[in-house]
């Protein structure tokens, strides 16, 4: 081996060692949309091990430095910070990039409560989460439309801007009982929810008495709330009799708008009626009614 060849060999070895000792340099776009593939530039020479560490995925594979590294859309579905690492021997280089949510494609919509008394202030609340097709929260400005369909057939719309992916509002329940449908929508995505508006507390609760021998039957007038909505069948009405023997109560469910109770009455007695927190009239028996 002559000196020239030897020198060339030494130079080649030194160059190889130098290149081997260089850490790979990776370049990535700062931001990538979720579910889209991306190409990273990998500077350097020779082969290396490439790692991608993301919120839900870790990828490890061999790459050739100097060539682009393609990361599949499948590995970039979840929004978050991704660390790309390339190691050449003992030297590692890295870069990071953010995967952000793509276009709104899903809504998670909550409408509470499922049953609400009529005419209650801020009693209905709606919360919609704006997500892309991979269920990432969409943080870019978006407006959610809420269409409210009422029992009387009328409807209205409310537009609420989403903040950090959440659009929320509260509304009063209306005066008529029945189903209320609220449909949240954004672009061509919509999610309907239905709640039931039910009668509120009884209003003007009143009963009459019908004596028949030793017994007296007490019957309420049709029981309605202050908006004229009938209280549902099964709602409990309490009749309480107070006389010289003490106090006794009969709980009676509403049937066809009315509740009925029968007491045996001897001597003077007082009978009162109540439904929920509402107290009705009181009747005195055994004397003037």
């Amino acid at each position: 081996m002559n000196r020239k060849t030897l020198s060339f060999g030494v130079l080649l070895t030194a160059l190889s060692t130098y290149l081997w000792a260089q850490e790979p340099v990776l370049n990535a776009p700062g931001t990538v949309s979720a579910g889209q593939s991306v190409k990273l530039a990998a500077q350097g020479h020779g082969s290396a091990t490439f790692y991608l560490v993301g919120p839900n995925r870790v990828v490890k594979r061999k790459i050739s430095l100097g060539e682009e590294i393609e990361i599949a859309a499948e590995d970039l579905k979840i929004a978050g910070k991704y660390q790309a690492i390339a190691c050449n021997g003992g030297n590692c280089g890295n870069t990071q990039f953010n995967v952000v949510a793509s276009q709104p494609a899903q809504l998670i919509f909550f409408l509470h409560p499922s049953r609400v008394p009529v005419s209650s202030g801020n009693a209905v609340n709606a919360t919609a989460l704006v997500l892309d097709r991979e269920k990432n929260m969409v943080l870019s400005p978006a407006k959610v439309n809420f269409k409210i369909d009422l029992p009387d057939g009328s409807s209205s719309t409310r537009t609420v801007p989403a903040t950090r992916g959440i659009a929320s509002f509260a509304m009063d329940s209306r005066s008529r009982q029945g189903k209320v449908q609220v449909t949240a929508s954004i672009d061509d995505v919509s999610e309907p929810r239905v709640i039931q508006q039910v009668a509120a507390e009884a209003c003007g609760l009143r009963m009459t008495a019908s004596p028949a021998g030793r017994f007296v039957t007490f019957q309420t007038d049709p029981i309605r709330d202050c908006g004229g909505n009938p209280l549902p069948d099964g709602t409990i009405v309490s009749f309480t009799k107070t006389d010289s023997t003490g106090r006794s109560t009969v709980d009676s469910p509403i049937k066809k708008d009315r509740a009925v109770a029968r007491f045996e009455v001897s001597g003077s007695a007082k009978v009162s009626v109540a439904c929920g927190v509402v107290v009705g009239n009181e009747l005195s028996l055994g004397g003037a009614q």
Binding site: F110, N125, T127
Partner: peptide
Amino acid sequence: FYSLDGGIMQ
């Protein structure tokens, strides 16, 4: 964010 019904906190 804390929803009125107490079901979600951000």
